[in-house]
Design a protein around this nucleic acid. Structure first.
Lengths: 121, 121
DNA sequence: CCCCACCATGTCGAAAGCGCCATGACAACC
DNA sequence: GGTTGTCATGGCGCTTTCGACATGGTGGGG
């Protein structure tokens, strides 16, 4: 019985594989490179022989650009809003520092736009 | 430096305490009871001396009724359908032109990161 | 045939989380 | 004074994940 999954660990390994293959179309080695994890760790996660630690869960979610809630099976939605838009394509590759820099840059641009709209129009 | 927090573990302990006190108004012991964890574990999490495992992170998020992304600092929204990241917050305000510029900027940063490849995340 | 990319599996020592339990600080209130 | 609630801290033995590395299997291309 039980089709595919019923406990969180099983859900996780399926979600991880789905996200890697179907969403991001990566090999395990590629995902490993983007997360900075050894490839064997990715394999262990998908095999269900290990569950990721706090830090590694974050790395996986960042690299795959999905919510941790999706990976944990707490949400059906892979990603909040993101994804289809090309602007999100490289986000997952950024370090935290550069991620903040990009966020600041976009906030700056957003303010510029707002200002122009105000003066001009 | 930097005000309060910049690494994920620091964010987590602050989010956890905030969620427990302000959102759910629970004592550590009450939260412990609802999660089935020993009270000392909750104390350790908020002190930052331990980081929760896969399973315990889920229990905390369930008991507090928040997203794991919020606890991990990947989303500002406690209950949010999750805009995954602060980095996404201003995107929708951008004009098409600036949106492209932001995308280019992020691609540039991503290439830089890839080249350096010493840090993670 | 031999490689090579991809993945599965396991072993190793080190590190970290686990639950449990004890102790102590500190404030509030009887 | 004493008691009670709340939280911090740290030791204990156990379990799990960690990264690193080795091995083996499978499938496709030269």
């Amino acid at each position: 019985m039980t089709t595919t999954s019923d406990n969180p660990s099983d859900i996780f390994k399926e979600r991880l594989r789905t996200a890697r293959e179907e969403l991001r179309k990566l090999s395990q080695a590629e995902l490993a490179r983007e997360t900075g994890l050894p490839p064997s760790s990715v394999a262990h996660f998908e095999a269900g022989t290990r569950k990721p630690s706090f830090d590694n869960l974050r790395k996986l979610a960042n690299a795959l650009n999905v919510t941790t809630d999706y990976l944990l099976g707490r949400s059906e939605d892979p990603a909040g809003a993101a994804e289809a838009d090309p602007i999100y394509r490289d986000v997952h590759k950024l370090t935290d520092k550069n991620r903040k820099m990009a966020a600041d840059f976009m906030r700056f641009l957003a303010q510029q736009d707002e200002k122009e709209r105000g003066e001009d129009e």
